[in-house]
Amino acid sequence: MLQLKYKMKLKQLIFIPFFITLIGCVSSIAIGQNTMNSEKKCANTSVQRSQVMLRAILDDLTTSYTELGGGGISQIKLSATNTYVVSISQEERIDQITYEMSIDADCKVAIDKRTETSVTPY
């Protein structure tokens, strides 16, 4: 029994590093493919396009919306292609910031127009 265990350990010692190396190679190929094809994936994945646009909106709000109070973002709605309306609840009103954006094949986002209005929800 002891001999058998020892033999298995020997096999493990030889094969485990081999497998790790192999997996590592496969992983790097996969990551490399991802990197190389990022333009294509961005252009073809609507969710990824939405994600980068939403990130750009949230980053912009950090500097452009300085109200400290209120109930925070209550809604972000795609009102037209590449146009989002962010609703932020405040007492007596809901601030609505409309972002018209463009996005290139590299997933680079530009805010083309930002307009702010308020609605009275009662």
């Binding site: 400290l68 109070g69 109930g71 609840s89 007492e91 809901i94 009275t120 009662y122």
Partner: peptide, 19 residues
């Protein structure tokens, strides 16, 4: 979300509104 005819129990508290 309160307004001129609907209040809440926190409306008497001092809170940051703007900067």
């Amino acid at each position: 979300g309160s307004h001129s005819r609907l209040y809440d129990s926190l409306d008497t508290s001092s809170v940051p509104k703007a900067s």
